[in-house]
Design a protein around this nucleic acid. Sequence first.
DNA 1: ATGATACTCGAACGCCTGTTCTGTGTCAAG
DNA 2: CTTGACACAGAACAGGCGTTCGAGTATCAT
Lengths: 227, 227
Amino acid sequence: MMMMVRKSKGLGERHQKILEFIASYQREHKHPPSIREIGLHCDISSTSVVNYYLDQLEKSGHLERDRKISRGMRLTGNTPLGDMLRVQMLGVIQAGEPIPVPTNDSFSSFTPDDSVEIAASLMPSKEKGKELFALKVQGDSMIDAMVNDGDIIILKPTQEASNGDMVAVWLSERNETTLKFFFKEKDKYRLQPANPTMKPIYVDKKESLEIKGKVVMVIRKVERYNS
Amino acid sequence: MMMMVRKSKGLGERHQKILEFIASYQREHKHPPSIREIGLHCDISSTSVVNYYLDQLEKSGHLERDRKISRGMRLTGNTPLGDMLRVQMLGVIQAGEPIPVPTNDSFSSFTPDDSVEIAASLMPSKEKGKELFALKVQGDSMIDAMVNDGDIIILKPTQEASNGDMVAVWLSERNETTLKFFFKEKDKYRLQPANPTMKPIYVDKKESLEIKGKVVMVIRKVERYNS
DNA sequence: ATGATACTCGAACGCCTGTTCTGTGTCAAG
DNA sequence: CTTGACACAGAACAGGCGTTCGAGTATCAT
């Protein structure tokens, strides 16, 4: 004597509810719900009915299912396939200050101090986050490298750089940290700004030049311009 | 009469193997393996041994476990909790060319033409990818906005901008697309370059100025410098 | 030797979970 | 009215899967 029927196509109220529950459950538990859990929270008393809807959602492409496997379902659309990697935010980089470099305690005893998540699909090489670290740029001094105040740079720690690498270097004799493209020439190093309109600076090989890391990515969250 | 023993602390060969298997299995199947599957692929004949190692990995912080729940394990460190959102890459943006804007077919019939994945945790506002789109910057003409050739910009489609927003605008009378910070003044618009050393350009309100979108993020993959 | 520690096996127990089958009420088309 | 698709319930079945227990072996310090 009571029945909310959903004609033919489109997502029904039940479908919607299930989809939302799966999403929220996944967020909270880090893994998908079981059929029975879905039924419980969506006021469906029979596991077969849940299965019934799950089948439909799968056919309509909202869901993927690994039959026979516990909680083997996942939403399509957003929260897609790719995985991502978390890189540690070690501190800030600014002119006149040495930059922090990753301590050598491998990757154990990780302090989730502060970190940035990067979609793995964005990483250029296969340098999949093993030893990457992130720095926040402070001040406008990196402008010649097309890096602005507040930007986040992702870098791979290294002492040596190939020609063409963008590196973070510490010029102790100039008491300056800077981001430049690195080129080794006859008797000196050429540090080429990213901005083609700016002239490179040359560092004699006698001068101490400490390469701190190689930049692999720059991320800028554009918020607002203060002016 | 044969036994590879691992003294005391640190990750043993077995631990490493299990960790790697879980990661690869997860990549392939989109869900964690079961204890028996781990044992099978890591040459461990007893489920209790796998459980034994899993316990250790959990204690050492490499793994999280939801006991009693099938495949209720996940690696910590990388491949973490957060979800991400996929934004469509609609095309390129370059001076002298109009930029593509999202067609109005909502978000159904999604062509995975080309897309970028962004960690949700990086998104400034709660504008969680609903209608975001991405463009690849071509040419050096956006340099005054601290955007380089090859950069990827994420923007939110809009026709109106508030003061201080970074917008992509089409100046039809100048036949140019550009990225600038937007300010409305008495009788004109001020388009402020991101680079503080560069002067703003002013556009009379009579001139047509089409705001295409508001930039929310800039991503640069640093590969190599051609020079 | 002896005991402690680390590691490994195999089997059994029992809950968890997806699947399947039978049955019921609703509604629209024939 | 009959028929059939559709939405749903409930129960039972069969594996999947984590857990636990008893027992055996190797290494090392005492």
